[in-house]
Amino acid sequence: MTGKRQDQIPGEGSRAVFFERRTYRRRRIIDATRLLPVLGVVLFLIPLLWQGEGGARTTDVMIYIFGIWALLAGLSGLVSRDLGRDRPGVDNENGTDADLFDLPDGEGE
């Protein structure tokens, strides 16, 4: 009985602790997707620090905001393209394989 148990590879049959490279990359991309709006909130709030005497002018803020806007859209495009590339055929499917990459860290199987 005990001998049988020792023969088992640790972690086998339960949740895998380490993923292959592809899965690992995908998870980090998902992390980036999740963090992007947080980054956006922080960057969009920064102009509030520039107020007061001798602070920024509307033109400065405008250029900054539009720059950040383009940056965020670009990053979002990069990230979502990477996600899409790793999902073969999903554009024509109902996305039934979403479970594959939906699992948040620590909850995955």
Binding site: A70, A73, G74, G95
Partner: peptide, 18 residues
């Protein structure tokens, strides 16, 4: 019609708004 469309909109719509 396709969940994949959302992925495109995620960057294209901010660009439109901008």
């Amino acid at each position: 019609e396709d969940e994949g469309h959302l992925r495109t909109a995620t960057w294209a719509f901010p660009v439109y708004l901008m």
